[in-house]
Amino acid sequence: MASQTLQSVPGEPTSARHEQSPEDVARRDAEGQAYFDKVMADDSRIEPRDWMPPAYRKTLLRQISQHAHSEIIGMQPEANWISRAPSLKRKAILMAKVQDEAGHGLYLYSAAETLGQPRDQMMQDLMDGKAKYSSIFNYPARTWADMGAIGWMVDGAAIANQVPLCRASFGPYGRAMVRVCKEESFHQRQGFEILLELSHGTPEQKQMAQDAVNRWYAPALMMFGPPDDDSPNSKQSMAWNIKRFSNDELRNRFVGMMMEQVKVLELTLPDKDIRFNEETKKWEHGPLDWHEFHEVLAGRGPCNAQRLERRREAHHNGAWVREAAAAYAAKQSRKQAEKESAA
């Protein structure tokens, strides 16, 4: 056995497992685990049909569906400004951007579906409050400058998080991330450009930009997740080649990037403690209010109720449309079957 090349072992639904003898199940699991371990050691990829440890499947399903939900809920703060965008060009760019986010949601739900859960179920979990999404979208987009700050900081943080995910060990997730990251980097540039235009505009516009940067800074840093010593799941995700860098590493790297870019904007970051540590060669930032983070995560943020209610409302109002489409499709396939049996 040891000399043979390890073969991928097909995964199978749990329902099929009870039809097999316990010995068969155990043998397949052992072979599957061996292949899986080899893939991890080679830093290669697991595909949807491959056997995978149940905890790996569960972790990915949670992470990818949360990511999809974040894209969908994340449409709301920006959609809020489409109707009031101050120029037609900005309106077109913003519309395209929010539309991209719907597209990201679609790829990600599709990637998650390959792990065995239908999109409807994920959507239901979101609306029932059982599934999480990124807490950043529970903050309000108060002014036009927030469109800049969200693009520059929130999408910027998302990119810092997601570029390493392009190499995630689960194939569909990694591939979805490649496309998502390309579009996100365009989003970040457009956000930066909005802020640049504002910071070089009237004093009122510059103030609007600074105010938005001040409000989004800390929530953006907290997007990387809790500090490393308080992030229980990180270690396992790193062992599974899903996560490549720790929360703090990514956060510090992101602070460094922003420090360079904020100079071009001629704005400031609301953190007096940012410094480059010559010894560790790493950027450091001031303390973050993790109490607030946990409050928002627990559902007590400024827009949690509003965001979920909008999603529920859209879903509820669209129910008759989805039912109509399904009924029409069923009628069409019945007609088609009748035609074929008559022929």
Binding site: M75, A79, I82, V98, Q99, R310, A314, R322
Partner: peptide, 19 residues
């Protein structure tokens, strides 16, 4: 039409109406 974005009956329609 822009009002439909994030309010459509299906994600696919958010995209279609947005487009």
């Amino acid at each position: 039409l822009g009002h439909w974005i994030s309010r459509a009956p299906e994600l696919e329609e958010d995209i279609a109406l947005g487009n």
